[in-house]
Design a protein around this nucleic acid. Structure first.
Lengths: 153, 153
DNA sequence: AGAATATTCGCAACCAAATTGCGAACTAAT
DNA sequence: ATTAGTTCGCAATTTGGTTGCGAATATTCT
């Protein structure tokens, strides 16, 4: 897929406001409504635009804190890793999980209401997954930046 | 703000599809159109719904790889940290940046096209920020889970 | 328990935006 | 220069968003 300058402007705008009305978007990118809409549909069909989502305020629903947890497994064979990945993906508190090659075996980003909520999650869910040997939690003291806006060349 | 069961169903649905038409949403949560819309507006006004965004496919725009970079600063005084935070927030390749209390001083999540693209970013932008002493990069070998959907109690 | 109050619902009419078809303008290649 | 291909903009149509009001449900106070 080859993106031109107008496509990039469309993507930038929709990353900021996924519900921007098409008329408004068209004006913002210097096009009339119908070709603008056509481009958006093409970007959706091509998978460049994956989906649209509502972004919630974590603090307002009692999930204001983020925790980064590094995980070491008892073994690194296929079965152990696959089982861990499948189980951790089921946990709704886990927003992100990556398998790592270096120091630890996996890293997860967890949201919780507070430290007690997190500790309960760790002991009752994370540590109970078969194959988990050790976990270490890092707590951010401040969030400097947190965006879903990808840079467009 | 007190959320009832219907509110939670609305939030769950809109986290999955931020552009779901109100009529459809109403049916999905067991309400008719107007009270459903009213609840959505209330959730927006209360800030529970922060905004709507288009989620792009990073691979399709040449930002397919994620890197986690831990950063150590030369000093931990207010000025050093504030300057670092301000500068790193300006970099579009940096999607997330957290100040840390433990081992390192900051952790950032960076997107890049490939390893070379990342190395260029690190040497030309990240390491050049005043006060940065050392950086260590962790590369995920596989993404197990990556979602923006917050759990609703 | 029962009445009064407050809240939330659903219907219907209205308004705005999304979508589609088609002819015109622009671009690129022969 | 002419032709083929692409992309544009206008206008009509359809679809969905929005608002007001009466009815139903839930809540509170005596």
């Amino acid at each position: 897929m080859n993106l031109d300058d107008i496509d990039r402007r469309i993507l930038r705008a929709l990353q900021r406001d996924g519900r921007m009305p098409n008329n408004e978007l068209a004006k913002a990118v210097g096009l009339s409504a119908s070709p603008c809409l056509r481009r958006v549909k093409l970007l959706e069909d091509a998978g460049v635009i994956d989906r649209y989502v509502a972004v919630l305020n974590p603090a307002k629903i009692g999930k204001g804190l983020t925790f980064f947890t590094r995980i070491w497994l008892k073994a690194q064979d296929e079965d152990t890793i696959e089982h861990f990945a499948a189980e951790v993906a089921k946990l709704p508190q886990v927003l992100e999980c990556y398998l790592m090659l270096g120091d630890c075996d996996a890293m997860v980003r967890v949201v919780a209401a507070d430290i007690h909520d997190y500790r309960r999650f760790q002991s009752e869910h994370l540590s109970r997954i078969k194959g988990v040997q050790n976990v270490k939690t890092d707590v951010p003291s401040q969030t400097v930046k947190q965006t879903s806006e990808l840079p467009l060349s």
